[in-house]
Structures are given as C-alpha cells and as structure tokens.
Design a protein around this nucleic acid. Structure first.
Length: 373
DNA sequence: GTCCCCCTAAACAGAA
DNA sequence: ATTCTGTTTAGGGGGA
C-alpha cells in the first residue's frame, strides 16, 4: 500500500480549528449539521512548534465521540478550496458510524444560541432495537462506507450486522429484503467482478450516482427525525458511564475510524477527486498519514481489478460533487487531510479562524453541556 | 380511498 | 447436493 507524507503547507502554519456550525453557515462545511463533531479549543493558542511537535510525535488514538468532546483541534495538512459546500449533501455525519446505531441520539448541530434550551435527555433504547433506516439506506451506508464504494452482497450483510446489532439476532428474512432491495431499487447497480480475482459468489453493488443525492436526503431525514429527542453530544458521560452501555459496534469501529475517518464534502469542483496526490488518486479512501503510516491498516482491496460494466468505469463518486477528506486523530489533535497539494486559500483559512474564535468565545460544547442543564 | 413507499415472504433459476 | 445470489411476484402496513 502506497502512502504519502504531508507536512504543513506554508499557507497553513497554525493548526486550524473549525466549528462546524459556523463553518457550514459560512459556506465551508466540515461537518453535516447533524454531526456532533466539534473542535472546541482555540487553534490560535498553539504555537507552530507545538503543533509540529504534536504532529510528528503523537500516536494516533482511537476516534470516539467522547474524544471530540474532550476538545481538539484540526490541523490542515493540505488543502483545497472547499467553498460552496452544500450541507444537504455532506456525508460527514454518515461516517460517524457510531451514530448510525439504532436510535442512538446523534446531536444535531444546533446553533449555539439554541443549545441552552435542549430537551432533557431521553433514555436510550437498547442497541438491539430495530434501526429506523430503510434497507435502501442501510445498503447505501454500507456501500458508502466501503473503500471502493462497492460491495458484494455478503459484505453488505456483514456491514449491517456489524453496525446494527439488531440484525445479529434477527431472522434471516432481512437478507432476503436486502437482496430484494438491491434488485428492485434503481438506486443500486450491479457490477461484474473480475473473474480472475473474485473470491466468493455474486457481483459487486454500487450506488448509482444519479440516485445518490436522493438516498442521502432520505437518510438524512431519517437520521434527523430519530435524533430530535435527545442530545448525546452534550452528555458524553452517557457514552462512557455505567448508565449507558456502549454498543459493541462503537468499540469495534473506533480503530478504523481513527485511521480513516472519511469526510465527504460537497464541492463545486468534482475534479478534486482526481487529486494530483498519487495515493489519493489511486484510492480516494486511502488514509494519508503524515507520520504514522505503519498504523494504517487498510482493508484489503479485493475489488480494485474487477471488470466494470457499461458506464461504471469511473468511480461512482467521480461526478457526484464530493470532496473526500480524511481525519486523523492524535492524542491532542485531529488532522484534517485534504486531497491535493494546493495550499489552503486565504478565504478558507480566515473562515476557519473566525469559526474557531467564535467557538472559543462561546465555550466548548463540553462546557455547554456541563452548564446547560 | 388512493397512491406511494417500505417490509416481508416466497418461489425460482443460475452460479459457485 | 448444497449454499449463495439475483430476480420476480405477492401481500400487507403505514403515511401523505
């Protein structure tokens, strides 16, 4: 697996922190409005030397919801112009995979001014309750969460089971429903595997780009609907405390999330997907770890060589208008790796810094959570 | 009541 | 022969 090293670009000498709420409102979306991601601490309080030290010496740590709540910064390792983000099509929240658990209350990115009026925390349903997502949404999430945005039906089963414990014990009929959905839905397309390299039966399935936005919107609505009654992000103790049993999936997903947390941003420049970064161009989901390549354990890419039928030669996302970014977590910081070697444009830097200042002025989400009740 | 979406079940054929 | 995969049909529930 090839990987590349990144250093802080000259235009981004300081760690840049982002407040998703404000960034999305100002056109620079680092997180879906439904995402709990927040980066409370001040970015400007760190010296370049400190940032560089942390950058080069801190091992990657697990990526959890509570980590976000402990306060971290984002460092821009590379950049692209990510203006004109459309939060309706931003998939970052989707990749908060722990949030995909059935009815697990994902905090909405409520404006800070409204955070004081949160409703009381609702008791969490068992993790084994049936997910509110339709099979189409489940399949969509599974495929989107795959390295190559395409999966055999067996892996779709596996993803669903791994992420939704309900299906571990559910009767086998749901698999029939999955297959039925794949066959019937226009949203999914079948791709022939490379006969010489295929292991296992069947074809690969991908999301039709033209239906992707629809699926995303359905998923977003479902997600929003089922996360309106509670607010986990403001009660991190619920994740770690005895009152709430963290579903196994959270733990199992931590490592992969830490290593390759994908953030998809809608962009006006789809060509960003074909970055001049060779690693990124080869595999848009390939984690780029500046100093911790050894920690990156990419899932085996079994489907890279499959024959792609009809017009599926290109990446299904290639014309979808998304930029794919990656997060890396150190002990104290998060690294936001953007494709390409181009420097962060001044406008984006200013937006990020303004957001960070606003965030700092308002206090961290954790502080708000502690004092907001 | 109708339409649409979704879920579930079942049957069947073909491939591995 | 068995299991898995993919397709198709049918019926029912629920919401708009």
């Amino acid at each position: 697996m090839e990987s590349s090293s990144h250093s802080l670009p000259p235009s981004c000498p300081l760690p840049v922190s982002s407040s998703p709420q404000q960034t999305s409102s100002s056109g620079c979306c680092f997180s879906h409005p439904l995402s709990p991601i927040s980066f409370p601490p001040s970015p400007t309080s760190l010296s370049p030397a400190t940032a560089e030290s942390v950058h080069s010496s801190s091992p990657l740590s697990h990526y959890t919801a509570s980590h976000f709540l402990e306060g971290q910064s984002i460092q821009c390792l590379s950049s692209e112009n990510i203006s004109d983000q459309d939060d309706l099509t931003c998939l970052s929240w989707l990749h908060q995979r722990g949030d995909l658990l059935p009815l697990q209350p994902l905090a909405k990115m409520t404006p800070l001014a409204q955070q004081e009026s949160y409703a009381p925390i609702q008791p969490l349903p068992p993790a084994s309750s049936k997910p509110p997502y339709s099979f189409s949404s489940l399949i969509f999430m599974a495929i989107e969460d795959s390295p190559n945005k395409r999966l055999p039906v067996k892996d779709i089963y596996e993803w669903i089971v791994n992420n939704f414990p309900y299906y571990k014990t559910a009767t086998g009929g749901w698999r029939n429903s999955v297959r039925h959905n794949l066959s019937l839905s226009k949203s999914f397309r079948r791709i022939q595997r490379d006969k010489s390299q295929s292991v296992g039966k069947g074809s690969l399935w991908c999301v039709c780009p033209e239906y992707r936005s629809t699926l995303l919107e359905v998923l977003r609505k479902t997600h929003s609907y089922h996360s309106t009654n509670s607010n986990l992000i403001n009660k991190p103790e619920l994740l770690d405390g005895a009152d709430y049993e963290v579903p196994a999936v959270c733990e199992s997903m931590e490592i992969s999330d830490a290593l390759s947390h994908t953030l998809l941003l809608s962009a006006s420049s789809p060509q960003i997907l074909t970055s001049d970064n060779p690693t990124f161009a080869e595999n848009p989901s390939c984690p780029l770890t500046p100093d911790h390549e050894e920690l990156v354990t990419m899932e085996s890419v079994d489907y890279q060589q499959e024959e792609v039928c009809e017009d599926m030669e290109k990446d299904p996302l290639s014309d979808s208008g998304y930029i794919e970014l990656h997060y890396y977590q150190s002990n104290q910081y998060q690294y936001l790796v953007l494709p390409g070697d181009t420097e962060l444009d001044l406008e984006t830097v200013e937006i990020l810094q303004l957001d960070a200042e606003a965030q700092e002025a308002a206090g961290s989400l954790l502080d708000l959570a502690g004092g907001g009740y």
